[in-house]
């Protein structure tokens, strides 16, 4: 199953609404990078509001996607990480140190604009 990637002006919006398994995650990584390349987007918001479970592999993929997109010139903001997910990640020792985060999509877009202005 593929995760839809929506384009809005210069931004790409992704709302993950399925259980992320390893295959979907890798597929998503490829799709997103391809889309950044084809659309020339400068910002990406990945919304994780409906994601209840994140294991260490998914967390690594998400971290990688952020770094890779950065390399291609697109800033990524993760939004809507659930408290339970945050606690799990911290317990697993995954701090996603350099990844910008925001509470919801709206604030994610504001944050993205701020980051791009700098």
């Amino acid at each position: 199953m593929r995760i839809p990637i929506l384009k809005l002006h210069n931004y790409l919006l992704i709302s993950i609404q399925t259980e992320l398994d390893d295959k979907t995650a890798i597929q998503f990584q490829e799709d997103l990078l391809e889309k950044i390349h084809s659309s020339g987007a400068t910002g990406v918001v990945i919304d994780l509001t409906s994601v209840d479970i994140v294991d260490s592999f998914i967390a690594k993929v998400l971290g990688d996607v952020v770094t890779m997109s950065d390399l291609m010139g697109a800033k990524v903001v993760l939004t809507g990480i659930q408290p339970a997910v945050a606690v799990t990640l911290i317990d697993l020792g995954i701090h996603l140190q350099d990844v910008p985060t925001a509470l919801d999509l709206e604030q994610g877009l504001i944050k993205l604009r701020q980051e791009l202005e700098e």
Partner: peptide, 12 residues
């Protein structure tokens, strides 16, 4: 520190 990191992860 853990609490603060978790807070940062959820976007605050």
């Amino acid at each position: 520190i853990q609490a603060a990191e978790a807070v940062r992860l959820i976007g605050s």
